[in-house]
């Protein structure tokens, strides 16, 4: 178990955390890039998915996109971006690759959420004379909310996890600790960086699950009943 001791030593050495390229800086980079990507992806995917779900069209598109998205390696997209003039555009190659990665599942989940809304409820709302806008805001959106949030949560966790791959093309984030360790054959550093990246992803998942429990209007009664 020599490696574990070395990993612990790496993690508890202050100089590994501070300064340029230290773990804190990498962590901030990681969160900044993930957050920006997720916001952009939501801004693109959610309005489109909600609109398509409202008018009830584009189901095939949503499913096809999700399937195609799974087949595209983020590493390849990043590598291609780094060979274009984008490479000198700071964090943009990573952000764009992550947006491309996150949009398909966000779109599919939000669309599914809208379509899973009980049709008889929608019909009843129409019968009560609700306009399209009222129907969307007061019936469809609240009922689709749990699935919508589940989709955003899983996208957030996957974005945080996938952002580590950016380091393989020389971009920032926690993955850099890992790739730097590989470059210098420093196994304790590799494992320490991997632990930090894995813990961050698990932490984000945990925080979002907790936030979802606290904030969701529809889940509260169910949680209280347990």
């Amino acid at each position: 178990m020599g490696v574990l001791t070395d990993v612990w030593t790496w993690l508890t050495t202050a100089s590994h955390w501070s300064g340029e390229g230290g773990a804190w800086q990498r962590l901030v980079e990681h969160l900044y890039v993930s957050g920006a990507s997720l916001l952009l992806a939501c801004a693109v995917a959610l309005p489109l998915a909600l609109w398509l779900g409202h008018i009830g069209r584009g189901g095939a598109l949503a499913v096809t996109l999700a399937n195609a998205g799974r087949a595209i390696p983020v590493f390849a997209v990043l590598a291609l971006f780094m060979l274009t003039p984008l490479r000198s555009a700071g964090y943009w190659p990573t952000v764009l690759a992550l947006v491309l990665f996150a949009v398909p599942p966000l779109l599919t989940n939000a669309y599914t959420g809208m379509r899973e809304v009980d049709r008889s409820v929608v019909e009843a709302a129409r019968g009560m004379g609700m306009s399209g806008g009222q129907l969307f805001l007061r019936v469809e959106l609240p009922l689709a909310y749990p699935l919508l949030m589940t989709g955003i949560r899983s996208a957030a966790v996957q974005v945080v996890a996938t952002a580590t791959i950016a380091s393989m093309v020389g971009q920032g984030g926690l993955g850099r600790i890992i790739t730097a360790g590989f470059a210098t054959y420093d196994t304790p550093q590799v494992v320490a960086g991997a632990l930090l990246a894995a813990l961050l992803a698990l932490l984000v998942e945990g925080v979002l699950v907790a936030a979802d429990r606290l904030l969701s209007p529809l889940r509260r009664p169910a949680a209280a009943g347990r």
């Binding site: 393989m168 990246a197 992803a201 698990l202």
Partner: peptide, 17 residues
């Protein structure tokens, strides 16, 4: 499900030792 949350780069690195 928890395993799926772990970043691929981290997963491969954790298996290195």
């Amino acid at each position: 499900t928890l395993l799926y949350t772990i970043p691929s780069l981290a997963m491969f690195s954790l298996l290195l030792p």
